[in-house]
């Protein structure tokens, strides 16, 4: 009898901490499930995918792997000069961060910034923007436009112009100048229109 009692008390002694542990776990799990586990709402990207399926895949993949993809891409770029748009930080920023938000530049210090919303939520430090720009910026056109300016002031340009004017009609001259000198900036269109204006005014004065 005594032996049975002692076994029973031993069982009780062992099971009490187990029960405490179990109840603690269940309370924790219950409270966790009661937590809002949804990530915070993010700013909408400027470009949208063609279908919801592709978008969902992109979101699921990037939510989990963006840091690895960016890390891999950064080394590919720095060491091997691979500058494709896929996983390029600039491409991410250009699509996910607006140029202006409430009339101001949206910086990563603002919690509404696409990256900062989640990084703030999970308290993960965001290092990229110590060096990289955190909002879309139009590429500089100045150096290229300088070169265009230099070119238009150069002797070679005047030689070509006089050659063209001596040999072909004005319309073709305008076209060929515009087609041979191609730069992919907005300013070029100004230069082109300047050219055509000049050409047309010249044509007018000739007549």
């Amino acid at each position: 009898m005594l032996r049975i009692q002692s076994t029973f008390t031993r069982f009780l002694k062992q099971s009490v901490p187990l029960a405490v542990l179990l109840s603690f776990l269940s309370v924790t799990l219950l409270s966790l499930s009661a937590c809002d586990s949804e990530p915070p709402a993010l700013m909408k990207a400027s470009k949208q995918f063609d279908s919801d399926e592709i978008r969902d895949k992109h979101v699921a993949h990037m939510r989990k792997n963006h840091m690895d993809e960016l890390m891999h891409k950064r080394d590919e770029t720095v060491y091997n000069g691979i500058r494709t748009q896929k996983y390029s930080l600039n491409a991410c920023i250009n699509c996910h961060v607006p140029e202006q938000h409430n009339g101001e530049v949206l910086r990563h210090t603002n919690p509404e910034h696409f990256c900062s919303t989640c990084h703030g939520y999970v308290a993960a430090k965001l290092d990229c923007f110590e060096c990289h720009v955190d909002h879309p910026v139009k590429q500089p056109t100045t150096s290229i436009s300088n070169s265009i300016q230099n070119y238009h002031n150069s002797k070679a340009h005047t030689e070509i112009k006089s050659y063209i004017q001596a040999n072909v009609s004005d319309e073709i001259a305008t076209l060929s100048l515009a087609k041979n000198v191609t730069f992919d900036t907005n300013e070029v269109s100004d230069v082109k229109t300047d050219q055509s204006n000049k050409a047309s005014s010249k044509k007018g004065s000739d007549q």
Partner: peptide
């Protein structure tokens, strides 16, 4: 620093120099 050029990341605590405009050359 803030508002760096997109093709040229620059930041406090690092050394920098002419990179022959790698972004343009590429």
């Amino acid at each position: 620093l803030v508002d760096q050029r997109p093709g040229t990341p620059r930041g406090k605590g690092t050394v920098e120099s002419c990179n022959m405009c790698v972004n343009r050359v590429d």
